[in-house]
C-alpha cells in the first residue's frame, strides 16, 4: 500500500474509534432525516394540488433536491469540524513529528490526510443521498437529476475539505483552523452577493463564488466548467497546504 493510502486508511481508523465521528454522523443523519420527513409530508399535502398542473414538479424537485441543497449548507459547518484535526490537531497533540520524521514526502502526507478526511465527508454525503433514494421503492425519481446533484455535492465537499486541510495546516490550534475554514468558505459563498443584488451574474466575481458552480448541479446540469472549478479550488488549496507543511520543517513548531 502506498504511503498516501496508508495515511488515509489510518485517518479512517482513527475516526472509526473516535466517539466524535460517530456522534457527528448520528447528529447529521437525525437532522437530515427530520428535514426529509418534513419535506416528504409537505409533498404529500401538496400532491393533490399538483395533479392538475402541467409539468408539475415531482418528488425529486420538491423533496430530494431541497434536502441535498440544505445539506450543502450544513456541510459548510461540518467540514471545518472534521478537517481541523488533520494537521492542527496533530500539532496540538505534538504528534506531527511522527509524520514529518517518517521520510514520507509532504505532498503524500497532505494527500493522505485529505483523502482520509474526504472519505468521512463523502460517507456523510452518501448517507444523506440514500434518504431520497429510498423513495424509489414507492415512486418514480428523476435519477439523472439526483445523480447530478449528488455529484455536485461530492465535488463541493471535496473542495471544502481541501480548504479545511489548508486551514488546518496553517493554524496551530484546531479551533482556529475550524474558524478559518468557516470564514473562508462563507466568504466564497457570498463573495458575489453584492454583484447579484445589482443584477450582475456573469462577472468574474460570480465565477469565484461557490453557489455559482453548485447550483447548476441541483438543476440537473453537469458542466465541465463547474466541475473544474471545484477541482481547481481543491488542487490549489492542497498545493498551498503542501507548501505550508514544507515551511513547518524550516520553522519552529
Amino acid at each position: 500500500m502506498s504511503a498516501v493510502g496508508l495515511i488515509a486508511r489510518h485517518e479512517w481508523r482513527r475516526l472509526a474509534v473516535a466517539p466524535f465521528a460517530w456522534t457527528l454522523a448520528a447528529v447529521v443523519v437525525a437532522l437530515m432525516a427530520w428535514q426529509f420527513l418534513l419535506a416528504l409530508q409537505g409533498f404529500i399535502d401538496l400532491a393533490p394540488k399538483l395533479g392538475g398542473l402541467k409539468d408539475a414538479p415531482g418528488v425529486t424537485d420538491l423533496v430530494a433536491l431541497p434536502l441535498l441543497r440544505s445539506f450543502s449548507n450544513l456541510l459548510m459547518l461540518l467540514v471545518p469540524l472534521i478537517t481541523m484535526r488533520t494537521f492542527a490537531g496533530e500539532r496540538r497533540a505534538a504528534t506531527l513529528p511522527l509524520l514529518l520524521a517518517s521520510g514520507v514526502g509532504d505532498a503524500r502526507i497532505v494527500l493522505g490526510k485529505y483523502l482520509g478526511a474526504l472519505g468521512y465527508v463523502l460517507a456523510l454525503v452518501a448517507l444523506v443521498a440514500l434518504m431520497p433514494l429510498a423513495l424509489g421503492a414507492g415512486t418514480t425519481l428523476d435519477l439523472g437529476k439526483l445523480a447530478a446533484a449528488t455529484l455536485g455535492l461530492a465535488l463541493f465537499a471535496a473542495a471544502l475539505t481541501a480548504l479545511g486541510v489548508l486551514c488546518s495546516a496553517w493554524a496551530a490550534q484546531p479551533a482556529l483552523a475550524a474558524a478559518a475554514t468557516l470564514a473562508l468558505t462563507a466568504l466564497l459563498a457570498v463573495v458575489d452577493a453584492g454583484a447579484r443584488l445589482q443584477g450582475v451574474a456573469n462577472a468574474g466575481i460570480n465565477y469565484l463564488a461557490l453557489p455559482t458552480h453548485l447550483e447548476p448541479f441541483f438543476r440537473g446540469i453537469v458542466a465541465s466548467v463547474d466541475a473544474m472549478y471545484f477541482m481547481l479550488l481543491a488542487g490549489v488549496a492542497l498545493a498551498l497546504a503542501v507548501r505550508r507543511l514544507g515551511a513547518l520543517r524550516t520553522r519552529a513548531d
Binding site: R13, R14, V17, A18, A93, A94, T95, L96, P97, A101
Partner: peptide, 12 residues
C-alpha cells in the same frame, strides 16, 4: 525518532 513528547495516537 522519539521526540520529547512521544507522538502517540491515543485512540488506538
Amino acid at each position: 525518532y522519539l521526540p520529547e513528547t512521544p507522538p502517540l495516537h491515543a485512540e488506538l
